[in-house]
Write a protein that binds this DNA or RNA. Structure first.
Lengths: 210, 210
DNA sequence: CAACGGAGTAGACAGTTGTATACTTTGGTT
DNA sequence: AACCAAAGTATACAACTGTCTACTCCGTTG
């Protein structure tokens, strides 16, 4: 990505500011943007062809920022449960520190613009792939096939994003949301370990260890 | 809910039609609505005080429709896996048959209007509660505490809604999405049966039955 | 039959939007 | 110092928006 000149950056940051005040990226107007950025409306055209292109660039800006955050996530962890706890803690803190970016992602993932949707989807899948490869590499849940780890990673990423809005908006529930998310992940992996058993097998098992 | 007179119904249906063509409820304009409904813009004011109230009424209309659909869901099922399969099949078919309602729900659940968000949340929680009580009543997964069943139900409802958009839009992936959702549910419940075990216990178990 | 109120219409208002054209300012290169 | 492209500005336009007031129509009730 090229260096952002003053006006371009100002416009993108104005968008993030407006989105934070409960707006959606696709609903932002060109003049509104320029007003918030303290620029002349037509300056917009110097940097972007239209609002669609603008949306994509905002997404790119966010993605780059998020990438650099996720890099720090490659820490050591003794066990898979430890890893899930650390990862969940980190990710939610990242969301909390970047509410606007998070809001954009959640809103536009199912928003009206197919263009932005596709872009976001592929970014989420990339994150999920990274997460899965990390889990596989560190052999955190060796009892589960790799394809299943990928699937659970995809589900988890989406679930966390889903909960991120509540996490940001409801401070009193943050701890509860985090613990709930950890249970979600652990149950998925534990359940996956039993994928090859029949239902009656699992029931017997549950009774035996009750 | 009172009987809908001609114009009111026309406006609500116009909204659903517009939303189906990739729009969001909160972004609809009063004149746009009236145009689509074939009415004079001012007729809107005969039925609604403003656009916020309109949104709420659309939500109510959808909720009522959805309720009557979910009622049919109370069928017999031999096992929990059977039940999850039946439920998932039914719910996705319902979404497919009501794409506009589904789109509204997904978009506004994280949309810019706090009012609509709260309303939708409580509707989803009501559905989750119903699902959980059904599972408990029919003793489908007796090895899991009731509170956990409620938690998993809430997660499942949200997850399904999350996937509903893809289900609607990508016919080729429908079977895959449905199977993936079933795996999601079964893993949650199976994993929850092992909630009280330590991680090493689970690992030993997995090795023993590998 | 008359009166009434709900439903729908007509026209007008100020304000906003995206866009086009034409202009000025700025910073860097030769 | 001269030049040039990039960045930013000014003005104007048609189209659209939400809302107001004033009107007509029509079925119900008295």
């Amino acid at each position: 990505m090229s260096v952002l000149t003053g006006g371009k950056l100002k416009l993108i940051q104005a968008a993030l500011r407006l989105i934070n005040q409960s707006r959606s990226l696709t609903s932002l107007g060109l003049r509104e943007l320029a007003r918030e950025a303290g620029l002349n409306p037509n300056t917009f055209y110097r940097h972007f062809k239209n609002l669609d292109e603008f949306g994509l660039q905002v997404l790119g800006y966010i993605a780059e920022d998020m990438k650099s955050g996720v890099r720090e996530l490659r820490q050591m962890a003794e066990s898979s449960e430890q890893a899930s706890h650390d990862t969940v803690t980190f990710v939610y803190h990242y969301f909390l520190a970047n509410p606007a970016a998070t809001t954009v992602a959640v809103r536009e993932l199912h928003g009206p613009s197919p263009l932005l949707r596709r872009a976001l989807e592929s970014q989420l899948d990339a994150s999920a792939r990274e997460m899965a490869e990390d889990i596989i590499e560190r052999q955190l849940v060796s009892a589960v096939p790799q394809e299943t780890i990928h699937e659970i990673s995809r589900m988890t990423i989406r679930y966390i994003l889903f909960r991120a809005m509540d996490y940001i908006e409801k401070p009193a529930q943050r701890e509860a949301i985090q613990q709930e998310t950890e249970r979600f992940i652990n149950r998925q992996f534990r359940g996956a370990m039993l994928d090859h058993l029949s239902q009656t097998d699992v029931e017997n098992l549950a009774q035996k260890y009750a």
